[in-house]
Design a protein around this nucleic acid. Structure first.
Length: 472
RNA sequence: GGUCCCAUGGAGUAGUGGUUAGCUCGCCUCCCUCUCACGGAGGUCGCACGGGUUCGAAUCCCGUUGGGACUACCA
């Protein structure tokens, strides 16, 4: 009963996610949020979570989710890195209403969406500050005169606070080489793109007063700010590029399901508050709101992700799993280029009940597609005793009397039980040698189903070979 | 060092003055059972500390401690 409920939740969560048109906020202004990553080579899990919260908020409010590429740091950014982000967003099911798309096209009329192409715009803003005496040149760079008065910094998640700027140094907004600095371009773009809500990592919380100062200088309306907590390593340090689990691409590579990763990310800093962990993205969209996001940092827990993935994995249909499984198995050299699809799907369907991650597939499925599989040494020693081999021989005789139509799980079970009773043994005395003989392994799918999938000819041949190899 | 943020078991969280502090992962035990996984029944483990406020604090205030972020002509 309980189990059934979970299953349904998982199955629901696996379905495609149509965009929900939620309600506009109370001010009736159309929400516009942006995700503004810097393409530096990988799509970081923390960035993915920030993107997710932005996307969720946009979908919840019926607003727009803008993707803006912050590629002003020429030394670090490379064009091909943009695709890493695009593919990562696509994999996680986050579609941008404006900005570059995975197919190479660009959506939206507030572009360009690459900061490297917005130089003229930034120049205009800097010139204006200069002309109004709000900025000045110093050592070739241009600095913004930061007012030294206290400033209020409101935040939808962290709460409002006041910053004393008495000792705040003037802010460099343009480098000696003429290129604009992050704080400037970030603010200018948010103004130009009519961003209403800035949802970003808490690492920007301490910078926000600078942004507010700039916005005020430009005479623009400030967006609402919402700083979300960081994702920390299990040891409490800030998760950086080199840490395990940091790269979204790795999850795909290891055979995680995108719905599972996304589901897990939703739970870092946000909760449906009804004691559920696995829930469909539509429900998250319906419930998600900024004030309910937690303020404290969250530790990344691969263990829990693994569990959630297992929930999704078992609930997934063979059709959904097949492409992923084929890719992993062929990459691992386990599945041949050409294979029998029906046989493959049958094998996959009995294996998927036992594992939680695509990465486990090669180890679990190798013997389906090759006859020269290895035998577990310890299991051979334990199971293929003279007695065990004797049972195997008796089983071989019995199975040989079964024609192919009787080679199904139900009939096989009956045969095993009948033979076990006949020789005064528990059925396990037959099952363990049989499993080892046909798979080389001591663990695997339900044996009766395994035999059915392998088929009569393969099973008899493998038992013969095992007997030959391990007798005497 | 300065500024800012945070603080419920090992991890993620529910809880916003009165609960035997709930749930999930993990871990342990037992059950189910052909192995494994699933599933079922239990168990382990927590309000960082110290002061207040209050008839009464996990919940409010202050301090301490701890963790984190920012403090660049990186983003």
């Amino acid at each position: 009963m309980e189990r059934k409920r979970w299953r349904r939740a998982v199955e629901d969560a696996t379905e495609s996610c149509p965009i929900h048109h939620g309600h506009l906020n109370s001010e009736m202004e159309s929400v516009r949020v942006r995700f503004a990553p810097s393409p530096t080579g990988m799509f970081h899990i923390g960035s993915a979570r920030t993107a997710l919260f932005n996307w969720l908020y946009a979908r919840h409010t019926g607003g727009a989710f803008i993707l803006r590429i912050e590629d002003t740091d020429a030394a670090r950014n490379k064009p091909e890195y943009v695709d890493v982000i695009l593919q990562g967003l696509k994999w996680l099911g986050m579609d941008a209403d404006e900005g570059p798309q995975p197919d190479g096209s660009i959506k939206g009329d507030k572009g360009p969406y690459f900061q490297s192409q917005r130089g003229e715009i930034y120049k205009k803003y800097v010139d204006r500050l200069l002309a109004e005496g709000k900025a000045y040149e110093s050592d070739g760079a241009i600095r913004f005169r930061v007012p030294k008065t206290p400033i209020d910094v409101p935040d939808l998640i962290c709460g409002d606070r006041q910053i004393d700027r008495a000792n705040e140094p003037d802010l460099v907004i343009q480098r000696k080489d003429g290129s604009p600095v992050f704080h400037l371009v970030n603010v200018v773009d948010d103004i130009e793109m009519n961003v209403t809500h800035v949802i970003r990592g808490e690492d920007h919380l301490s910078n926000t007063h600078k942004h507010l100062a700039l916005i005020e200088a430009f005479g623009a309306k400030a967006p609402h700010y919402a700083h979300i907590p960081l994702i920390l390593n299990p040891n409490g340090s800030k998760m950086s590029k080199r840490d395990v689990g940091a790269s979204i691409a790795d999850y795909k590579e290891q055979g995680y399901l995108h719905e599972a990763v996304r589901n897990y990310l939703c739970l870092l800093g946000w909760s449906p508050k009804d004691n559920r962990e696995v829930l469909p993205i539509e429900e998250v969209i319906a419930k998600f709101d900024l004030p309910q996001v937690n303020r404290s940092n969250a530790h990344f827990d691969l263990n829990k992700l693994f569990w959630i993935n297992g929930e999704y994995f078992r609930a997934a249909s063979i059709e959904a799993l097949e492409p992923l499984a084929v890719e992993i198995l062929q990459k691992g050299g386990v599945l041949p280029e050409s294979y029998d699809p029906a046989y493959f799907r049958a094998a996959l369907s009995i294996v998927k009940e036992k594992i939680k991650l695509g990465r486990e597939l090669p180890e679990w499925m190798g013997y389906f597609f090759r006859e020269d599989f290895e035998f577990e040494e310890a299991a051979v020693k334990k199971v293929f005793t003279p007695e065990g081999l004797g049972h195997l021989a008796q089983l071989r005789v019995r199975l040989a009397t079964l024609d192919a139509t009787k080679f199904n799980a139900a009939d096989l079970e009956a045969e095993f039980k009948a033979l076990a009773a006949a020789i005064g043994q528990k059925v396990g005395a037959l099952i363990h040698p049989a499993r080892l003989a046909v798979s080389g392994r001591s663990v695997g799918p339900s044996l009766y189903h395994l035999l059915e999938v392998l088929g009569r000819e393969r099973v008899l041949a493998r038992i013969d070979r095992a007997e030959q190899k391990f007798s005497k």
